[in-house]
Design a protein around this nucleic acid. Structure first.
Lengths: 147, 147
DNA sequence: CACAATTGTATTGTGTGCAATATAATAAAC
DNA sequence: GTTTATTATATTGCACACAATACAATTGTG
């Protein structure tokens, strides 16, 4: 097999599909005035509030270079607050505001709306997610075999 | 199932894995002084030279807002030329320089090197690629059911 | 305790992605 | 054949991603 062909690469469909899926999210997230990465941060906080920047980064595999400006924008929108941890002034704790918590209700049906765009049954979706998650764990920095 | 949980989303693993895979490419592409999207453009041109900006965009699902500056950078590196099509002055034809063609030899073993990072057998990889490609076609703009 | 190493976040700079708009060339409509 | 519509690329502006660096707070070491 000629490996230097776009059609034979595993990585291009991954790259392209990721962007196309984000594009499907966009009109839904526009209503909440959120970008996709901002939505991911909100998802994490809705699940468990009061995370440090580092904890958010661990969950989302993003560093402070990406998160700090993103979080400042969420702060400007009054969805979160950013405050230094008095017990360890290096850390910054991210906390949902009431408006941030309220937004969860408006986001509740996004997963269902999105699912409708995919002609894929639940079983197949779960299996695909499992496969992607396994690969993700192989590559993630917490895997010792990647230093 | 609580759909508003990060762990239950299909899209987050897709987003995160895409970035992690690009990160695996990075040290390999650094040697060629290429970014991942630049590498994708070169892949298309190695397969068939003399593409217009629009044709590259169709293949890679990128628009001129992304491609134009990217192609200018490849031009600065003397890997491609950009010239208006005399038969239709609106189009810009992208052509590999000799240096651009020569670079293919240096890129030849990237797919193999990359594969080693994935603990996934060929059969599984092909099936996963098929699944991603199918989803991609469902979402791509050429699919009528998406307008 | 002093002081070096580490940790957590922020900043800077570069390169995408993408929406919105601009512009020039071609095609279509009349 | 002029006018209008469409097409192909470019430009602008904003928001990621991420490498590299900076900096302050904390921890480890003697």
């Amino acid at each position: 097999m000629k490996k230097l062909l776009l059609q034979n690469q595993l990585c291009f469909p991954l790259y392209a599909l990721s962007r196309q899926v984000t594009a499907v999210y966009r009109p839904l997230l526009d209503k909440l005035e959120l970008t996709y990465p901002q939505y991911l941060v909100m998802l994490v906080l809705w699940e468990a509030d009061n995370k440090t920047v580092g904890e958010l980064g661990d969950k989302l595999l993003l560093d402070s270079g990406t998160l700090t400006p993103l979080l400042k924008r969420l702060e400007q929108k009054k969805l979160i607050t950013r405050q230094r941890n008095p017990a360890d002034e290096r850390q910054v704790t991210i906390t949902l505001t009431e408006a941030g918590r309220d937004l969860q209700a408006l986001a509740a049906d996004i997963p269902t709306q999105l699912q409708a765009s995919f002609q894929i049954d639940d079983q197949q979706a779960i299996q695909l997610r499992q496969q992607l998650t396994t690969l993700l764990q192989q590559l993630s920095p917490t895997n010792e075999s990647n230093q």
